[in-house]
């Protein structure tokens, strides 16, 4: 499917980050997803360019997580198209799906570390299972990746339950980057962390994504985090992208929904479903 004159990852040489060449890294087109009668995604369109960091902001229940899971292939969209490097992924077979999955890294909101495995094996999981690397070799890489997220060698032997929330998030980040993915998804990377640890995670995300030259798609409702890690911001509301633009324009979007959200006001066009007595 990938166009001519492109390298294996679908990118021509020397393309500046974030610019749209013919094929965006990830393209979601007219995505629909409903659970029963509840429509969650309602014709969502989104494009993420090569080596770009796009942050999707939006309130709870607007479809952020569902969008991310559809893009990852964990949920199946009802209709619409999901293209990775121009390749349609909504109808892939098991083997092709696994091949596409190798391009992905994912940082889960709750870290989702395997609690039956020590920290180093968590980080090395994709290397051992996915890339068939030898265990001792994979352990070395894991320790290296742990160092990259500021964790000492001793942590490698601990189990996830012995770590604090911030440390778990960092281990999960190390796991997400260990296989050198081309696209990394971040699900609420700073939720549940104190402001300082949240900033540490933000810095690490920027550093890791830059080091890898990876494309990043994040969802968050933490504006401080969004402003810091985004090249471009998109806002999702009722299952659609209602605004997108460079992070510098977020304060002058001219969109009342965006304004209400970034200033955190209860009054405005977005009405929360709260029962008033």
């Amino acid at each position: 499917m990938s166009a001519m004159n492109y390298f294996a990852d679908g990118t021509p040489v020397g393309t500046p980050p974030g610019t749209f060449v013919e094929t965006p890294k990830l393209r979601l087109t007219n995505l629909h997803k409903a659970f029963g009668s509840k429509v969650v995604l309602n014709g969502l369109d989104l494009e993420v360019g090569r080596a770009e960091s796009l942050v999707v902001i939006g309130g709870s229940g607007t479809g952020k997580s569902v969008m991310l899971k559809c893009a990852l292939g964990l949920l199946r969209a009802d209709s619409g198209s999901i293209q990775i490097d121009g390749e349609e992924t909504t109808r892939l077979g098991t083997r092709d799906r696994e091949r596409v999955m190798r391009k992905f890294g994912m940082l889960f909101q709750g870290a989702a570390l395997f609690d039956s495995l020590p920290v180093w094996e968590n980080v090395a999981f994709g290397l051992i299972q996915g890339q068939k690397m030898r265990r001792d070799q994979a352990k070395e890489v894991a320790v290296e990746k742990l160092a990259a997220v500021g964790l000492a060698k001793e942590v490698a032997e601990l189990f996830p339950s012995e770590l604090s929330g911030g440390m778990q998030k960092r281990v999960a980040l190390a796991r997400a980057i260990a296989t050198q993915p081309e696209i990394i998804f971040f699900d609420e990377p700073t939720t549940g962390l104190d402001p300082i640890m949240a900033d540490v995670i933000n810095d690490l995300i920027i550093k890791c994504v830059k080091d890898l030259g990876a494309t990043a798609l994040s969802i968050t409702h933490d504006m401080a985090s969004a402003r810091k890690i985004a090249d471009r911001i998109a806002m999702i509301y009722k299952g659609k992208i209602i605004w997108h633009g460079p992070v510098s324009e977020i304060d002058n979007s001219g969109n009342p929904y965006v304004d209400q959200f970034i200033h955190g006001r209860a009054d405005g066009p977005i009405q929360m479903e709260v029962m008033h007595p």
């Binding site: 990852l72 696994e98 994912m106 709750g110 609690d115 039956s116 994709g126 299972q129 996915g130 296989t179």
Partner: peptide, 20 residues
């Protein structure tokens, strides 16, 4: 065990690490 892995997204994490 599998139920806990399911609700804590560890099963999803397996998929994202290219493991069925």
């Amino acid at each position: 065990e599998i139920g806990t892995m399911r609700v804590t997204e560890q099963v999803d994490a397996l998929s994202t690490l290219a493991t069925n």
